[in-house]
Design a protein around this nucleic acid. Structure first.
Lengths: 331, 331
DNA sequence: GTGAAAGCGCTAACAA
DNA sequence: TTGTTAGCGCTTTCAC
C-alpha cells in the first residue's frame, strides 16, 4: 500500500480512502493516479489486515451435523448463496452430532474471529452457547432449538408434520405404526416423536413401535421387530435411516407398501422415481438456510429490531401412493 | 494479551511463548502464573492478528461447481475432514461452472489470504491460474485438468472408464449407444466422450448418439432422439443428467433395461435399490478430495519434493443387472 | 529465562 | 482535499 501511495504521489490514507470508495473529497486527478499505480503494481488489498483493524472478518461459521445428509447439503448451498450475495464467506464444519467436536469448532471459529455462527446445535453445549450469548456473539440455531436458551432459531413444524404423517397412515387403516428415528436428545427428533405418539394415542393406538435407534442398529432392530411383532407401516426419521432400512427391506423381499407402508422424512431425490414411489416429508431446507443466514447477518449488523426469535417453516407431506390402501381406485 | 501479561507479572512476549508452546526456557513458575492469568481473564488468542503477523491463515479455499452434486458433496466432506485433522479450515464456494463467479471467488479468497486453493476448475480462467502459479500460490485442481497448465491435479481415469462402459454395452449386443453429457469444454467430460467414441469406433459403431446438452434441454433432446432414431442404450454423464432423464423415461413408460439400457456416472444412493437397479460408474470422490487436500497442504508447507503432478484414481463400473441381456442366466 | 521494541497491512480520527 | 499518526493483537529478533 505504501508502494502504491508513493507511486501515485499521495499518502497511504488517501489510497485507503480510494479503496473504500470514499471518493467524495477526492480529485478526479488523484483518483486516476491511484488507479494507475494500483494496476501498475498489481496491488491487492490484504483483507486480514483490514479485519484486524475493523474487528470484522466478513466470514461466518456454519456448523452442521454432517454435510452428507441431504438436509445439510441443501442448507450449505443456501447459506453459501446468501453469504455470497452479501460479500460474506462461510466456513463449513461437520460436528457429527458430537458435542466435543462442536465445541472445538466453535472455539476455532471464534479464534478466527468469524462475525457470527450458524449452527445445527447438539444439545450438550448449553453452557458454551450461553457464554456466546452473554458476550453478544451473533448466533443462530437451525433445525433444532436448545432448551432454556433464547437464541434466534429457524425450525420446522415438527410436531404437526409428524402428527400428519401418523394420521395419514391411520386413515388408511394402519394400526401398528412404527417411527424409527436416530437417538433422541435433539429437539427436532423429540418433537417429531412427541407429535407422532400423540397422534397414535389420540386414536387409541399403541406406541410400542416408536423407537430410537443408532444408525448401525437399524437393521437388526427392524429385523427383530418384523420377526416378532411386525408393524404394517414405517416412518423413517431421516434420510440416513431410510438408507439403512431400504436395502434391508429389499433384501428380505418385504413388499412396499403391501407388507409395510413407508413414509420418510427428508427429500430423497430418487424417492418419487422408485417403484413404488416413496411418500416423503419434505423440508424446505434451502429456504431455511437462507432465512437463518439473513437473520444471522442482521444480528451481525446490529439490526436487533427485526430479529424474530422463532421462525418456523412448514414441511410438506408428499403423498406418493406408497401406502397400501391407495392402490387402484380405493382413494 | 497485555492484560494477561500484567496479571501474570510478565511481558507480552513471554505470554506469546507460552501460547505457542515454547516452554523450553520458561520456569514452571511463570508457566503456571500465565496459565492462571489466562483462565482468570478468559483470554482467547486472536487468530487474525496472528495470521497478519505470520502471513498464513490456516485456511484454504475450496471451489466446487455445485455442492448439490453428489460428487461435490462427498469432496467437501472429505476436504473438511482432512483440514480438520490438520487444524485447517475450508471456505467453500460454489462457482456454478461460471468463470466470472470463479474469478470473483478466487479474488476474494486471495484477499482473505487463504493459504491455498483447491478447485474444480472451469476452463476459462487460464490466465488467472497462470498468474497464481507464477506467484507461487498453492493450487490444486480436482476432477479436471486445464490444458497447458502444470498444476498438481487429482483426476479420474475418465477415458478408460468411459471405454469400459461402452464395451460393456457393446458386449451385451447393443449397437445404438448414446452418451449424454452436459456441455463439453471441461476436461473430464471431454475425456469421457473421447474414450466412449473411441470404443464405439473401434467396434465399427456409429457415434451419432453421443451428444452434449444443457441440463434443461435433456428432456426434449431425449424425446427427439427416441422419436426419430432411438438408441437401445443410454449412458448419462453425471447425476444431474440422470435426474433429468429418469423422470422423463418413467413418464413415457419406457422400460429399463428392456427398451433402453441405462448406465450412469456418479454414485446415486438409491440407484442400487431401484427396480431395476441402475448400473453406475462410481467415483472415489472422498478419496479424491482427501488426496487433493493432502497435496495442497504439502504444497503450502513447501514440501515441493513429494507433490505428484498427476494423481489418477480409478472409477468402478458397478454392474447391477440393468442391461437387457443380463436377465435370467444369459450372463 | 524474560523483556523491549519493531512491525505485519490496514483504518480512522484529526490536522493541515 | 490530503497527510500524519496512532493503533488493531500478535510474533520475533535481540538484549539483558
Amino acid at each position: 500500500m505504501q508502494d502504491v501511495a508513493e507511486k501515485a504521489g499521495v499518502s497511504k490514507s488517501t489510497v485507503s480512502q480510494y479503496l473504500n470508495g470514499r471518493f467524495e473529497y477526492m480529485s478526479a486527478e488523484t483518483k486516476k493516479r491511484i488507479q494507475t499505480a494500483i494496476e501498475a503494481l498489481g496491488y491487492r488489498p490484504n483483507q486480514v489486515a483490514k479485519s484486524l483493524k475493523q474487528k470484522r472478518t466478513s466470514t461466518i461459521g456454519l456448523i452442521v451435523a454432517n454435510i452428507l445428509h441431504r438436509f445439510s447439503t441443501l442448507v450449505c448451498r443456501a447459506v453459501e448463496d446468501t453469504c455470497h450475495e452479501q460479500d460474506y464467506h462461510a466456513i463449513i464444519c461437520n460436528a457429527d452430532d458430537n458435542p466435543e467436536k462442536e465445541r472445538k469448532y466453535i472455539d476455532m471459529l471464534r479464534a478466527k474471529q468469524v462475525d457470527g455462527i450458524l449452527v445445527i446445535p447438539t444439545q450438550d453445549n448449553t453452557d458454551l452457547y450461553e457464554k456466546l450469548i452473554q458476550n453478544g456473539y451473533p448466533l443462530v440455531f437451525l433445525d433444532r432449538k436448545v432448551a432454556g436458551l433464547s437464541v434466534p432459531s429457524v425450525t420446522l413444524n415438527n410436531r404437526e408434520i409428524a402428527r400428519m404423517a401418523a394420521q395419514h397412515l391411520i386413515q388408511q387403516g394402519h394400526e401398528k405404526i412404527s417411527l424409527m428415528t436416530p437417538p433422541l436428545g435433539v429437539s427436532s427428533r423429540n418433537e417429531r416423536q412427541a407429535g407422532f405418539c400423540q397422534s397414535l394415542r389420540d386414536h387409541g393406538l399403541s406406541t410400542r413401535y416408536v423407537v430410537s435407534v443408532e444408525l448401525d442398529q437399524i437393521r437388526q432392530r427392524l429385523d427383530h421387530m418384523l420377526q416378532t411383532d411386525p408393524p404394517t407401516a414405517l416412518v423413517t426419521g431421516n434420510d440416513r435411516v431410510l438408507m439403512e432400512a431400504l436395502p434391508y427391506l429389499k433384501e428380505k423381499g418385504i413388499s412396499i407398501p403391501e407388507t409395510l407402508a413407508l413414509i420418510s422424512f427428508d427429500e430423497m431425490e430418487l424417492a418419487p422415481l422408485m417403484d413404488p414411489p416413496i411418500t416423503t416429508i419434505e423440508q424446505p431446507a434451502m429456504e431455511m438456510g437462507r432465512r437463518a443466514t439473513e437473520i444471522l447477518l442482521r444480528q451481525i449488523r446490529g439490526q436487533q429490531a427485526d430479529i424474530p426469535l422463532q421462525t418456523v417453516f412448514d414441511a410438506t407431506l408428499c403423498i406418493r401412493q406408497s401406502s397400501r390402501f391407495k392402490r387402484g381406485n380405493l382413494l
